[in-house]
Design a protein around this nucleic acid. Structure first.
Length: 445
DNA sequence: ATGTTC
């Protein structure tokens, strides 16, 4: 029996809350993050709330939180997050470390020069409004129609790279204007492009020991951010109209069967498609660099998935199979036949995991962690971590910031130990690692 | 995360 913490439905909670952490990680979880998770269970129409071991304080729902709503129940922009379809993509290179080694300095310089990155950065590509709308409505298949898709990769993407129900008429002009120049950019904060080496792979996995891979972590940029902002404002306005009780302002929501709720889902789908396309286009920029530096190597997509989204799924909740809208915010869907990519903090290993298909995976609504999870806020990290501490925490890893900043707020010292998160997933019988990916070279946003 | 004020 894998362990988890169960908080029964008490007082004004509508459902129990299950927190899937080891005892060790539980000690590190902030009181406020747990409080936010328990508060989510008080929203009327919420049928299940689950926390992952990388739980930390967020806006409304904590990062690492999963919240399932009944049909007609709440849909909450804050429970998806500002970076809609923030996600991870992993590429295989077929190269060994030896083939890469002489070039790693060049590679870092080329990445910095040729990958559009940093706060407010515009893309090197120009899209017309109609092309942009086609992309945000259809996702990756639209890139294929525009002759911008290199290969048939849809089966290696969550949602086949096309989120259903997206409708650009639900997206504000302001969001379109922000998004149209940002498609094909990495962004900032915890977004990164990292070259890694497989150091520990299970024999049954697709990974060879020592193989070089590339991981990309980015999302929907200012586009998704604007959509979240627009709909949070609308939700507050709709509170009276639908006579809703928000336990905290940041858990503002719509009824799923309201026009506004449906509009949010349609707009959220556009941001999801933006982010799928963004990761694909950045992969193409990377391929251009790769062709120059490693002409014998071809970048092949291993998998691409999100960790910030709401989607319809069927789960057994309280013994009853039902269709629910699952919000995952800093949590990854993990079905029995797909892998999940769990990026570490800068300078620490990332992992590929598979489901353990246990009783607990069903209780966790088929969810797993999304990363190491913060241990300090950005401001706290900048105050308390010194340059020297940060530099030594990076060890041999070559890191460069596109913005030229000191990256203290992204230091591994500001995050939980990813290996404890992975141990925790195993102890809870949610997932087990099939490969550990050690960082070599990282471009931070 | 973010044209850094959710």
């Amino acid at each position: 029996m894998g362990i988890y913490y169960n908080f029964p439905a008490e007082d004004d909670m509508n459902c129990p809350v299950k927190l899937f952490t080891s005892h060790r990680i539980y000690q590190e979880i902030e009181r406020e993050a747990l409080n936010q998770l328990l508060t989510a269970a008080t929203v009327p129409g919420v049928l299940a709330v689950v926390g992952m071991p990388d739980l930390h304080q967020g806006y409304g729902l904590p990062i690492g939180g999963v919240m399932a709503s009944e049909e007609g129940g709440p849909i909450s922009p804050g429970a998806v997050g500002f970076d809609i379809n923030c996600g991870v993509r992993l590429l295989k290179t077929g190269l060994t470390l030896e083939e890469l080694n002489n070039l790693s300095n060049n590679l870092l310089q080329e990445l910095r020069k040729r990958i559009p990155a940093g706060l407010g950065k515009s893309s090197s590509l120009k899209f017309s409004e109609s092309e942009f709308k086609q992309i945000i409505t259809q996702g990756l298949p639209a890139l294929a129609q525009l002759n911008l898709l290199d290969e048939v990769i849809l089966s290696r993407c969550e949602d086949q790279g096309s989120f259903p129900g997206a409708d650009s008429s639900a997206v504000s002009k302001k969001a379109i204007n922000r998004g149209i120049t940002q498609l094909n950019t990495l962004g900032s904060g915890n977004h990164f492009l990292e070259v890694q080496q497989v150091v520990n792979s299970q024999p049954e996995s697709d990974f060879k020991q020592g193989e070089v891979v590339v991981m990309l972590h980015t999302g929907s940029r200012g586009f998704g951010h604007q959509i979240c902002k627009d709909y949070l404002k609308l939700a507050e306005k709709c509170q009276q109209k639908y006579n809703l009780s928000f336990p905290v302002k940041n858990l503002a929501h719509f009824p799923l069967n309201s026009p506004e709720g449906q509009d949010y889902l349609a707009a959220m789908g556009c941001a999801a498609n933006f982010a799928y396309a963004n990761r694909e286009l950045l992969t193409q920029r990377l391929r251009e660099i790769w062709r120059d530096l490693f002409p014998q190597s071809e970048l092949k997509l291993y998998y691409d998935h999100t960790h910030n989204i709401a989607r319809w799924e069927t789960h057994i909740i309280a013994g009853q199979e039902q269709r629910v809208l699952v919000h995952r915010k800093g949590a990854t869907r993990l079905s029995n036949d797909t892998p999940a990519l769990i990026p570490g903090s800068m300078g620490t290993s990332s992992y590929v995991v598979k489901s353990l298909n246990s009783e607990n995976t069903a209780l966790a609504l088929q969810s797993t962690a999304h990363g190491a999870g913060r241990k300090m806020s950005r401001t706290q990290a900048k105050k308390s971590i010194t340059q020297e501490q940060h530099r030594s925490s990076l060890g041999e890893v070559k890191a460069v910031s596109s913005s030229g900043g000191n990256m203290l707020d992204e230091s591994p010292l500001a995050y939980k130990d990813i290996s404890l998160v992975i141990d925790s997933l195993q102890e809870s019988q949610l997932a087990h690692p099939i490969a550990r990916l050690k960082p070599l070279v990282v471009l931070k946003g």
